[in-house]
């Protein structure tokens, strides 16, 4: 670095020398016109660029970056919504309380449990569905549409619908189970089953969406690879292991991270189906933040939890980035 600097300096000195040496010989000329025109053109381009970009930047700044900063600031205060003028700085008190808060701990582990199960299951179901219908099939479009159909319903609609299907006495699923001789299950009202019932529904709702992305990925794998493998007499298992899976790696990682983050944001399903119960077994992190902020109006503490939540999401994202980079490198 240093060598470069000194040589640049030398160059600069030389130029100075030449300029000072030559200057007296030159007649005074008007400043180069072309350059000036270029400069004003660059200026105009910059102005136009900012004219096009400014609305989005201002909106993102005000409604995304500012609240982000505000959440960070609130997390060190005792901001209470009903007394917005009486806010004092309390240092790390909120964060200390997070460690002691049994509800937070429960919500955190509930969310981890949900994510740790949903992510691999949903990923495999989506991949399995995509592989099943990535063939010449009769009614292929019909099957694809059927698997995708839960995606057209919103999470709210799906949650309400499944609450009725999970109904312990009259629900559709228990009625179906009864015809096969299985006694009615409590599903959402038992602490052992409630979260698992929500997991089943969530996988059912989301898998079709990722199936579509996998299908697109499968179509991007060049066909000649399979043809070459056929000539070499590879079994279909070998083809899957050595061609299909490596070809889907990046897409699978992308889907993995999307599902992980979405899973960590779990809110709508427990809010509608169980209100976090029974015995807090379905209370999620975001749900706990929501309740603290809006029901108990403790913005300071809720913000501290939101900061922790953001950090967790960031860590998941960074791990994924690293994984993808390693892949490429």
């Amino acid at each position: 670095m240093k060598g470069n600097d000194s040589s640049a300096e030398k160059l600069e000195n030389e130029r100075h020398f030449h300029q000072t040496a030559k200057k007296p010989q030159l007649k005074p000329t008007p400043p180069p016109r072309k350059k000036r025109k270029l400069k004003s053109q660059a200026f105009r381009e910059a102005m136009t660029g900012y004219f096009f970009l400014a609305p989005a930047l201002v909106l993102l700044g005000v409604f995304l970056l500012y609240p982000m900063g505000a959440a960070f600031y609130y997390s060190f205060t005792d901001f209470y919504i009903l007394t917005p003028d009486d806010v004092s700085f309390i240092g790390l008190e909120n964060f200390k309380y997070i460690v002691e808060d049994a509800q937070f701990r429960q919500a955190f582990w509930n969310t981890v449990y949900f994510s740790v199960i949903v992510v691999p299951v949903q990923l495999s179901v989506a991949l399995g569905l995509a592989l099943l219908i990535n063939k010449k099939l009769r009614f292929r479009v019909f099957f694809r549409t059927a698997f995708f159909s839960p995606v057209v319903m919103s999470l709210v609609v799906v949650s309400i619908l499944w609450t009725f299907m999970y109904n312990p006495n009259e629900g559709l699923i228990n009625q179906l189970l009864q015809t096969v001789g299985i006694p009615p299950q409590p599903f959402l009202t038992s602490p052992d089953q409630a979260m698992n019932s929500i997991i089943v529904m969530s996988v059912w709702q989301g898998a079709g969406f990722q199936m579509m992305i996998f299908l697109a990925g499968l179509q991007n794998i060049p066909n000649h690879l399979y043809e070459a493998a056929d000539i070499d007499g590879a079994s279909s298992w070998q083809k899957f292991w050595h061609i299909t899976l490596p070809g889907l790696r990046n897409i699978a990682l992308f889907i993995f991270i999307t599902i992980s983050i979405a899973a960590f944001k779990l809110l709508v399903q427990p809010m509608i189906m169980t209100q976090g119960g029974p015995l807090g077994t379905t209370k999620s992190l975001v749900y706990h933040i929501y309740e603290t902020g809006f029901n108990y109006r403790d913005v300071g503490y809720a913000s501290a939890m939101a900061v922790v939540f953001t950090v967790i999401v960031l860590v998941i994202t960074i791990i994924q980035r690293v994984l993808i980079k390693e892949e490429r490198g």
Partner: peptide, 8 residues
């Protein structure tokens, strides 16, 4: 995550 900024 939008969920982390909805309060502020």
């Amino acid at each position: 995550p939008p969920e982390s900024i909805f309060l502020p």
